[in-house]
Design a protein around this nucleic acid. Structure first.
Length: 590
RNA sequence: GCCGAUGUGGCUCAGAGGUAGAGCAAUUCACUCGUAAUGAAUAGGUCGUGGGUUCGAUUCCCACCAUCGGCUCCA
């Protein structure tokens, strides 16, 4: 058997699985039209066009048909056809999507097909030799998906599945998914009391409960302090502005669907039209514009813990990951062309420092997001400015030890981005941090500085975040640590557990003592058995549980349990304080 | 926005066309307790919202809202 760790083989394996899926669907529902069915990271899918969506019962039926096809041990054969013959074959089989695909293939492309029994599919391959090799598979879900990924096209029915060379591997994979589900911030974050949502408040507008709000506060204080150390100046700018501002920035023309607009743009002559801010840039630029600037003043680094509002489409919201209102560690750096590289590096360095401190470094990858020169709707500015900004960024990236992938059409509307992508427990990727170079907005806003020789110049603008959007970061932290956040950012660090009523005073005293030392500490003073109090504290992932009873009161000690190591013994209070202080100071994470 | 699923007390879940249950949690009393789940009692739901069908709906139909999984979009 070949090595399943080999990505090439794995893709071949999953791709053949997709063909078996399509084969089964065609047997059971012959009127179904085939679209495409690739291997993906953890499995495969196939898109089908048919009137009725697939039900769970259909899936079970398809699975058993797939089992039959595998048992039939069908050989998989490749053959090639000329373009006219290929089109003829697919037309005969009434597969319009395949015909469309063939027509779009480049002139020189070899057009190949794969056959297994009575099933034929247009396919570049490669494939396994025989259907029997797919020993273990499972259809995991159905979903809608647009033909060729465009919302202008027809929505097809997609079936997702996964497959492995043996049953044990499938079982392990499904068990891993089950574990990931337990860490899902959207479930765990609610259970642990970090946040909630209310249907009459609306989508993408979470209530941050005391624990969640506390973590956001801890993180933002940490970020603001660190940025101050690195020469940033904090601003506090309005959450909304007149439409005039966004007309200058380009948001009005290029981002209006993404904004919450107050007032009626149709009656702009008579009434005020405002919009909640989707980004902070134009506001911080106004701070720059308050006086004339010299090259000696640059770089200027404005940071802000900035709440933004984006009118995301209704189906986009998800837990704390996609919101309509969120708060981001925002900054804009106004720099001379000579300073761009050093300042950009500084931004990357800060982002990496943040990721290290949070313990997320291993989960990220870097993406160089460029514009799409053909999409005039989405972007502002001339190709020359884009080329300059992209060349500058590429040059910097290539001189840093950063491995990155390039993505076309992922830029912001005003400039290219370095996106730091993070994978969550399910392997799903999102942008956590972004650093952008902008050669456009300085012109639009008339930002300038006087250069050494006395001439007026445009500063280059770096847009960046250091830790990303706080809510999203919290979501990833909850998943990363399964709710057991590192001590320094834990909303409740210590819980005191008096064994009986006669230890309540001692518990209150200890609580006061620890609070005075700066710990976030609570006491469980309910009339409950000690075992139950401990159990509940464990479920809440409280890092330190201090049990206090007769012996401890007499000796000035506490019985210490940690969520990680369990019972670590009876220690003098001073000693446990020192231990916790050291752990907090080191910002240790497991 | 599109496709699909879901929505019963704080949580997990039963239930059925005739006006709702269980366990855990909560409250009270007893027990004053050394690593969750002692006993007794009490309270808590117009079954997501609004229409419609029906003698009657939470259960059937429609619309809307929210949540979840995808697509598209995006921090």
């Amino acid at each position: 058997m070949q090595d399943f760790e080999d990505v090439g083989y794995q893709n071949t394996f999953r791709h053949t699985s997709a063909h078996i899926l399509a084969h089964a669907v065609k047997r059971l529902f012959p009127e179904t039209k085939l679209a495409i069915g690739p291997a993906i990271e953890n499995g495969f899918y196939y898109d089908f066009d048919r009137e009725e969506p697939f039900t769970n019962e259909d899936l079970a039926e398809i699975e058993s048909e797939m089992r039959k096809i595998i048992k039939e041990k069908l050989d998989i054969e490749r053959f090639e056809l000329s373009r006219p013959d290929a089109i003829k074959l697919m037309t005969e089989l009434e597969e319009p999507y395949k015909v469309e695909l063939i027509n779009d293939l480049p002139e020189a492309e070899v057009i190949s097909f794969y056959r297994q029994g009575d099933f034929v599919d247009l396919c570049a391959g490669p494939h396994l030799d025989n259907t029997r090799e797919v020993k273990a598979f499972k259809l995991t879900q159905t979903a809608g998906a647009y033909w060729r990924g465009s919302e202008k096209n027809r929505m097809l029915h997609r079936i997702y599945g996964t497959s492995f060379p043996d049953k044990e591997m499938l079982k392990n994979y499904l068990a891993m998914l089950e574990e990931a589900r337990k860490r899902d911030h959207n479930k765990l974050g609610r259970e642990l009391g970090y946040f909630t949502t209310v249907d009459y408040i609306g989508q993408g507008l979470p209530i941050m409960l005391p624990k969640g709000a506390r973590v956001l506060q801890i993180l933002s204080r940490f970020v603001e302090d660190e940025e101050q150390r690195r020469g940033y100046q904090l601003t506090k700018t309005p959450l909304m502005a007149k439409s005039d501002l966004y007309k200058i920035s380009g948001h009005w023309d290029h981002y209006r669907d993404g904004m919450f607009i107050i007032g009626d743009p149709e009656k702009a002559e008579e009434t005020e039209v405002l919009a909640l801010r989707p980004m902070t840039c134009p506001f911080q630029f106004q701070a720059y514009l308050t006086k004339t600037r010299s090259y000696r003043d640059l770089p200027i680094r404005y940071n802000e813990t900035s709440t933004l509002f984006r009118n995301e489409a209704s189906g986009e919201m998800h837990g704390l990951i996609r919101l309509r209102q969120f708060t981001i560690s925002e900054a804009h750096l106004l720099v001379t062309p000579e300073q761009v590289e050093a300042e950009f590096r500084g931004c990357v360095d800060l982002a990496r420092y943040m990721l290290d401190t949070l313990g997320l470094s291993e989960d990220v990858s870097y993406r160089f997001s460029k514009w799409d020169p053909n999409d005039k709707e989405k972007y502002i500015g001339e190709p020359a400015a884009w080329d300059a900004a992209q060349d500058t960024m590429k040059n910097i990236l290539d001189h840093m030890d950063i491995e990155y992938v390039t993505a076309d059409g992922e830029a912001a509307f005003y400039g290219p981005k370095l996106d730091i992508q993070i994978r969550n427990v399910f392997g799903k990727e999102d942008t956590l941090i972004t650093i952008q170079i902008d050669f456009q907005l300085a012109e639009r806003f008339g930002l300038e500085y006087t250069d050494r020789g006395g001439e007026k110049k445009r500063p280059t603008i770096i847009h960046r975040t250091s830790i990303g959007c706080y809510e999203r970061t919290l979501a990833l932290l909850i998943e990363k640590y399964a709710g057991a956040l590192p001590l320094w950012m834990m909303p409740e660090q210590v819980r005191i557990l008096p064994i009986s009523e006669r230890h309540l005073d001692a518990a209150a005293n200890l609580r006061a003592q620890l609070t005075a030392q700066g710990f976030r500490v609570e006491a469980d003073t309910r009339d409950e058995k000690i075992g139950k109090k401990i159990r509940e504290a464990q479920l809440e992932k409280i890092p330190y549980m201090l049990v206090i009873g007769d012996q401890e009161v007499a000796d000035g000690t506490v019985s210490v349990r940690t969520r990680k190591d369990g019972d670590i013994g009876v220690l003098p209070i001073a000693q446990i304080i020192q231990r916790m202080q050291e752990e907090i100071a080191s910002r240790k994470h497991d």
